[in-house]
């Protein structure tokens, strides 16, 4: 199994479902926001269907990128957040020195 040991969730009968930790964070964010009433899971699901449905090139399909895009688009629709903030902060984070936050 690829990436075994890197995230290795302790599942009794399953295997690794996330390729990278950020994917589980994004999944966790969506569920937590839903549980806190920021949107309904149906609203999120509909947005996700739109994202996945608009994807045509099978060559580079990455489910969690669509999942992430669906989440940010829905948050924008709800006026809870703007993509500009995301762009600015992402640039700042990308400029950090190597090895800044290896807390795990």
């Amino acid at each position: 199994m690829e990436l075994k040991g890197l995230i290795a969730p302790p599942m009794a009968n399953g295997d690794v479902v996330f390729d990278e930790p950020w994917q589980s964070r994004v999944f966790g964010m969506a569920r937590a926001l839903c549980e806190q009433g920021m949107f309904t899971w149906d609203e999120f699901r509909e947005q996700l269907i739109l994202q996945i449905g608009s994807f045509t090139d099978d060559g580079d399909y990455q489910y969690f990128i669509h999942f992430f895009d669906a989440l940010t688009l829905l948050l924008e629709k709800k006026q809870l957040f703007s993509k500009d903030e995301l762009v600015v902060l992402s640039e700042q984070l990308a400029a950090r020195p190597h090895g800044h936050d290896h807390s795990h």
Partner: peptide
């Protein structure tokens, strides 16, 4: 520079 993928950084930024 960070070695994290752009998508990992975007996810971290969103959470922050």
């Amino acid at each position: 520079m960070s070695e994290e993928s752009p998508q990992a950084i975007r996810a971290e930024a969103l959470e922050s």
